[in-house]
């Protein structure tokens, strides 16, 4: 049994030793799981806001608060672990929203759009996603199997991305 690393809110963990990385209770935040099967390494990011322009000082203290600085910092860290950006598989989950046809609290949606925009800049695409709706998700990156799964709150079954 390999170790389980818990990724908190506004946090990222990377590993190259076959661990399971897990993050709990994704609401409007987004979990981004990234792995390079050749390097046998990967990381899980749990960011909460779309754009570091909101507060650049905070972003320099903790880049994992934001989509843009969070993803950039994660990719740099993974490159140091021997990953190559072109080989990366990327999957995302979360980005839930309060029920609102008028988009009053659309941080979940903006978090998702920010993710797509940043990945496009790196010439990367999402290989799997489970995003939106109004429910709570846990997300797991299993580096021994190179698999990503999501579990909804109150439900036993895992959904494979």
């Amino acid at each position: 049994m390999n170790d389980i690393l818990v990724v908190n809110i506004a946090d990222m963990k990377a590993s190259n030793s076959g661990n399971r990385l897990i993050t709990y209770a994704l609401g409007s935040c987004i979990g981004v799981a990234v792995f390079d099967p050749v390097a046998g390494a990967g990381g899980l990011l749990h960011y909460m806001l779309p754009d570091s322009k909101l507060d650049e000082r905070k972003a320099s203290e903790n880049p994992f608060m934001f989509a843009d600085t969070g993803i950039t910092s994660m990719l740099r860290k993974l490159e140091k672990c021997g990953c190559e950006i072109r080989r990366l598989t990327i999957k995302a989950a979360g980005g839930s929203n309060i029920m609102d046809p008028n988009g009053t609290f659309s941080i979940g949606k903006k978090n998702y759009l920010a993710l797509k925009r940043i990945l496009w800049r790196y010439n990367l695409i999402l290989r799997g996603e489970d995003v939106g709706g109004s429910l709570s998700r846990n997300m797991t990156l299993n580096l021994a199997e190179m698999s990503v799964s999501v579990r909804y709150s109150g439900v036993k079954e895992e959904v494979w991305l």
């Binding site: 409007s28 309060i98 709706g133």
Partner: peptide
């Protein structure tokens, strides 16, 4: 929204 104490009700409000 931040997921603090987010339970089976999720953001269904």
């Amino acid at each position: 929204m931040m997921g603090i104490g987010l339970d089976l009700g999720g953001l269904s409000y």
